[in-house]
Amino acid sequence: MRIEQLQAFLAITETGNFGQAAKKCSVTQSTISRQVQGLENTLGVDLFHRSHQAKLTVAGERLLPRARKICQEWAMITQELHDLMAGKQPELCVAAIHSVCSYHLPPILQVFSRQYPHVQLRVTALGSDRALKVLRDGLVDVAIVMNNPAFTTNPEMVTDILFEEPIEVLMAANHPLTQYNQLGWSELASYPHVVFKDGYGMQRLVQDWFSQQNAPIKMAMELNTLDAFRGVIRQGELIALLPHSALVEAQEDPTLAIGRIENHQTQETLTRQVVFATTRDRAEIPPIKAFRQMVQKLSVSDKMSTPLSVY
């Protein structure tokens, strides 16, 4: 059964004969006849009494209200999809990590809102792994997060690397580690850590890094807001490994200090990669495509990976 067959059936019931139905559908009368015959063959019943005036059979009467409903639904979804690809998307849902929501997204959101006033923006701050999961499940349109190849290498995903930034150590201004110019894993392993909760890419990165060094990490506390990190850290010996962009406010706080991480043997630093991710089908929808281009442009012009000054 094809939608054209149902449309032909409705056209005949509305006009009363095959010839007028053909004109209404802008096809030949023989085409209308074939479409109705095909529909009758599929259903196994006659739908019209073949006479001068096309009159519905009992089966045709039963089909009529359902055919109208099906064609109405088809017209609605056809229009909705046309509007979608024409850029008439009612909303755009963004999941992003906290530092991106705080410092990098606001100017993009303002520009996007001016260019697409009919699209309602919905922005949610989530941990990287959680954000990528809800993107995969279709609950958001895009994610701006710390890269996790377990999700982003999926062939259904489109991923842009936005920037790479160093991971640094947040500590109290009077912490013993402030005496070091660079901090290696042996110094970091000596103190208890505050880490992001499960579902945040930073927890995964920190745990993986300590595991690679064969050093146990002393996880004393799990938090999920930068304000909470700063409040706890300034109280004593706890430290936290956080990305550069999460330490903007800490840099101006005299009760806090920021230290650089460096492997004393290899001179390597610990970094994280921030990416824009969406699905391939969403990437072609005009508002999402425009939003992606805005994010790409800002990532090129914004010096987001310039190291902060340290103690």
Rank of each mutant, 00 (worst) to 15 (best):
D281S: 11
D208G: 06
N263Q: 04
K88L: 06
A131W: 05
G138L: 12
P90V: 07
K88E: 02
A228M: 11
A257R: 00
Q235P: 03
A220K: 05
A67K: 01
E4K: 07
I285M: 05
K303R: 09
P117I: 05
N263W: 01
N224I: 11
F210G: 03
R68E: 10
Q115D: 14
N148A: 12
F163E: 00
R136Q: 15
R2T: 07
Q182W: 07
C101T: 11
A250Q: 01
N224M: 15
M221I: 14
E237D: 11
I239F: 02
Q120K: 10
G16N: 07
Q265W: 06
F229C: 08
Q179F: 08
N224R: 10
I258M: 02
F112L: 04
N148L: 12
H264N: 00
A172D: 07
H244M: 15
P307Q: 07
L63W: 04
T178D: 00
V248I: 15
S301E: 10
Q213C: 07
A228S: 12
I70P: 00
G184W: 05
R260I: 06
E249S: 13
M221D: 09
S309W: 08
Q79N: 09
R2D: 01
Q115I: 14
G199F: 06
F151A: 08
L43R: 02
T159I: 11
A277C: 14
M157P: 02
K88D: 00
K197R: 11
S113G: 14
M85D: 09
S190V: 12
Q7E: 13
N224W: 13
L298M: 12
S26L: 10
K88N: 05
L188W: 04
T152E: 03
R114Q: 14
P243F: 05
L56I: 08
E61G: 05
S309V: 14
I261Q: 02
L177M: 04
H49Y: 14
Q179E: 09
L298H: 10
E4S: 08
H244E: 15
F112T: 06
L247Q: 03
F163S: 00
V94F: 05
S190L: 08
R280N: 12
M157F: 13
Q79D: 15
G87R: 00
L298R: 13
G127L: 03
S245I: 15
